[in-house]
Amino acid sequence: MVSLASIDWSSAPSEDRIRALKVAPSRQVCAMARAVRWDATGLDVISWISAQQGVDLGSALTLFLHGDPQRFNDVPRNAVAQRDRRACSLLDALCQRINAGFYLPDPARPVSEPDRLLAYLRQQREDTRQGLPRRWGINETVLAPLLTDSQIIARRKGRQAHRKTGQKPGLFGNLISPRFG
């Protein structure tokens, strides 16, 4: 039996990595979700990890952000280079699972880079405000359990600034504003 400790992750075939992950505890699978590289050798592992119910929301978001979704957010699906289509497909699946609530939050496993997540969400809101299409929109309501009090306050201040300029919140803003601010 192959174990996580016995594998050279830089050279082992993806089949060996997945075999080791299948017998690993969920905390190790989550750790791998945060560490796996989004290159041609890691895509099979990413596909397997992203389909596991034991992966928590913070690890899934970290995995999603490590896939660098900003690179492809403005690119139409049919214009993505062939070499990047598998990565985009995995980002599609991750985003759908995140938004569907497939991954449960675990307070012990927050997002590895919260500032990067908040920047992504800010850009998402700005693009939405400008009417720009996005390929991967994260449902912020799903993220509420992971956001700290200071992050929630910062988000509220951002909404209040829009309200001061006379802009009205959209339908989505009206739906979540009673819950968050």
Results as ranks from 00 to 15, higher is better:
M1D: 07
S6W: 02
S10R: 10
S11K: 15
D16G: 01
R19Q: 11
R19D: 09
L21V: 05
L21W: 08
Q28N: 10
Q28D: 13
M32A: 06
W38F: 14
T41G: 11
T41H: 11
S47K: 12
I49F: 01
S50M: 14
Q53K: 15
V55A: 06
T62W: 00
T62Q: 14
L63E: 12
L65Q: 00
P69Y: 00
F72K: 05
N73M: 02
D74S: 09
D74V: 08
V75W: 04
N78I: 07
N78V: 04
A87P: 05
L91Y: 06
L91Q: 13
C95P: 00
A100P: 02
A100Q: 09
Y103E: 07
L104K: 11
R116T: 09
L121M: 12
E126G: 12
D127W: 08
G137Y: 06
T141R: 09
V142T: 08
L143N: 13
L143K: 10
L146H: 02
L147N: 01
T148R: 04
T148I: 04
T148A: 08
A154D: 13
R155K: 12
G158Q: 10
Q160I: 14
Q160R: 13
K164F: 06
G166L: 14
L171M: 11
N174D: 15
N174V: 08
N174Q: 15
S177V: 03
R179V: 14
